[in-house]
Design a protein around this nucleic acid. Structure first.
Lengths: 157, 157
DNA sequence: CGCGTCGTTCAGTATTGCCTGAACATACTG
DNA sequence: CAGTATGTTCAGGCAATACTGAACGACGCG
């Protein structure tokens, strides 16, 4: 692996770290982001200097979140990982999910659910309205991106 | 502090935890979110059963991020904290920042900066375009929210 | 000035959770 | 069916860091 690539991978790793992921998860993602071929567990473990155990755990986590995909090769028992086809959309949906989860937290706040009125109530209502506004805008943006006009793409099937 | 409130505070705390903040930072924010008066360091420390040292550190962190505000009371030397006035806007701006930071990471990826072409290059270009699209939409949404028509608000000065 | 109040800083501890090696499960191969 | 390759799970070590108590500094008041 080129030193340039290694540096990039590490940057992605610290970013993921700050986002609540493990560092190895970030390395795996970063590595696959700049790979033009799918990589096996062993390849990832070796290139990232991490144990196969960690790589196995983290790849499955990332796969569950729709960030990675497993692919097979004919006549090969190994599992290969690559970045998800709809990666950008997927990452935005993950962000949307986080926002939605926080919104329900606000909605279920006792000061709000319990009726009543006052400063706190108003504040929470405003938060909720703001989240409604932003979530709608974000959802629409994802949709328009999905439907964006594309250059003639290579057929994949 | 009511048990309901304590439960809410704790929920916010675990959410913040997952977002990379410390748990106490989450507790402070959660508590202030449902308080109709600004709270002092000592009050926060006591109610959250945390040391004044931690609360001091975390409040200053949250203040630096524009999530909290310090306010004073006439004839009182203490510092009181409350949730920022423009809280919703601020939280979205923080999310925007994170996205922007990741975008520059992608833009500076060696496989992209180094010219060339191919699958990886296309993927990174697509990521960048997607981020451009989403960031623009988000920025617009924040603006429209800022300019939203409001009910007659109580004058604050 | 001296004293009490308040906030910050810092070294040390405790806890969390990341990461790993080794054992285990499963599936293929000859 | 034995042997091998591959992926997963798990207990334990270890590094990072969250949190605290105590010392410190600053400020205002009498």
């Amino acid at each position: 692996m080129q030193p340039n690539t290694a540096a990039f991978v590490e940057k992605v790793a610290v970013f993921f770290d700050a986002e609540g992921f493990s560092r190895i998860a970030g390395r795996v993602f970063g590595r696959l982001l700049v790979s033009d071929v799918a990589l096996s567990l062993d390849e990832l473990a070796e290139q990232l200097k991490a144990s196969k155990a960690s790589v196995s755990t983290e790849t499955r986590l990332l796969e569950r979140r729709g960030i990675l995909e497993r692919v097979g090769k004919p006549g090969d028992r190994k599992v290969y990982y690559q970045v998800a086809a709809e990666l950008p959309v997927r990452t935005f949906e993950l962000r949307l999910d986080r926002m939605r989860r926080f919104r329900v937290l606000v909605q279920e706040a006792p000061a709000r659910a319990g009726g009543g009125s006052g400063l706190v109530r108003d504040r929470l209502d405003e938060m909720d309205a703001a989240y409604a506004h932003m979530l709608q805008a974000l959802g629409r943006a994802v949709t328009t991106w999905r439907q964006r006009p594309r250059r003639r793409a290579a057929l994949s099937s």
